[in-house]
């Protein structure tokens, strides 16, 4: 099922939480929802899941507006809210059965679905414990299990990997990626490497507005556009080397780095690459290049530059 959001806005009292955002998520796509605290991620998710009403604008799921078909559409959404609220006095298996029944899984399929979820989320050893006894990571797995119990076409996950240990994170990401092949997934997170590892597309939102929308690659090139290379040269005179490098016509700037060795940061002109020219220059002068490190703009930097102002 596809989700289409048009000019969505929502206020709390006077504060604008979401301010006219529009985007689309297609079936088989995993959308990473990024943004600083209070950017409006959770509010948007709450509106998609019909927990709170839509302020202005509209949300369509398979071209049906959710404001009119909420009861119907809720069945095809699996939701893991922020902080993963669960009934702590219930047993894992009872809770999953309860959720399955509420989501309209037919009675004869409930046991089978619960079994599958227990297996997929690695809850087998814990299935008879009460949820309150579980560690945070296991609770998170229960949260994921209840979201997927009715095999929904849409998954909305608000920070799905918080509280998990690194091994579990890898497993859950793998699970989400597999699910994402046939479902529509929106996940929000603060963890930037997670978005790169799991998501097909990234949406950065700040102060209720979308500030970036594209793949991780798109965002990186949008943000810098200039190639940066760190190099170390031996057997060369410092000033001579800097002058010669600056004279190359693809090079914009040469910045000497700290230290006794001759380490330089070479910034190319926009859209140009100077790595070949660098090598030829050093070869012709008889300088020895002992390090060439391409510097990638980190997603962190992109995120910071888009959301800090």
């Amino acid at each position: 099922m596809d989700i289409r959001i048009e000019n969505l806005s929502r206020r709390y009292d006077r504060q604008v939480a979401v301010d006219g955002i529009s985007f689309e998520v297609k079936k088989g796509e995993i959308l990473g929802f990024l943004g600083p605290n209070g950017a409006g991620k959770t509010t948007t998710m709450k509106m998609i899941t019909s927990y709170i009403s839509i302020g202005e604008g509209s949300i369509f799921i398979d071209n049906k507006p959710i404001s009119e078909h909420a009861e119907d559409l809720k069945k095809s959404i699996g939701y893991l809210p922020e902080n993963n609220p669960l009934y702590h006095d219930m047993q894992v298996i009872d809770y999953l059965e309860f959720c399955a029944a509420l989501q309209g899984v037919p009675n004869n399929k409930i046991t089978e679905r619960v079994k599958k979820m227990v297996q997929d989320c690695g809850l087998n050893a814990e299935k008879h414990k009460t949820i309150g006894e579980l560690s945070k990571g296991y609770r998170q797995r229960v949260g994921l299990a209840q979201a997927m119990i009715h095999d929904p076409a849409i998954l909305i996950l608000d920070e799905p990997t918080t509280g998990l240990d690194p091994n579990q994170i890898v497993e859950i990401r793998k699970l989400i990626r597999e699910l994402g092949k046939e479902k529509t997934v929106i996940l929000s997170t603060h963890i930037l490497p997670e978005v790169e590892a799991t998501c097909d597309r990234i949406l950065i939102i700040n102060k209720g507005k979308i500030v970036a929308n594209g793949t991780a690659e798109d965002l990186r090139s949008q943000a810098s556009g200039q190639e940066i290379t760190k190099i170390k040269i031996e057997d060369a005179d410092r000033q001579q080397a800097i002058d010669a490098l600056t004279a190359l016509d693809t090079v914009d700037q040469v910045l000497p780095l700290q230290g006794d060795d001759l380490r330089l940061e070479v910034i190319s002109r926009k859209g140009k690459s100077s790595r070949r020219a660098l090598f030829s220059l050093c070869a012709s002068k008889g300088w020895i290049l002992t390090e060439v490190i391409p510097v990638e703009t980190k997603l962190e930097d992109v995120f910071r530059s888009l959301t800090m102002n």
């Binding site: 709450k46 899941t49 019909s50 927990y51 009861e71 809720k74 069945k75 959404i77 939701y79 809210p81 902080n83 609220p85 669960l86 009934y87 702590h88 959720c99 509420l102 989501q103 309209g104 209840q146």
Partner: peptide, 14 residues
């Protein structure tokens, strides 16, 4: 208080 109401009301119930 615990927020479970959110989980309950986003299920297919009114």
């Amino acid at each position: 208080k615990t927020g479970t109401i959110e989980l309950l009301l986003t299920k297919a119930v009114t």
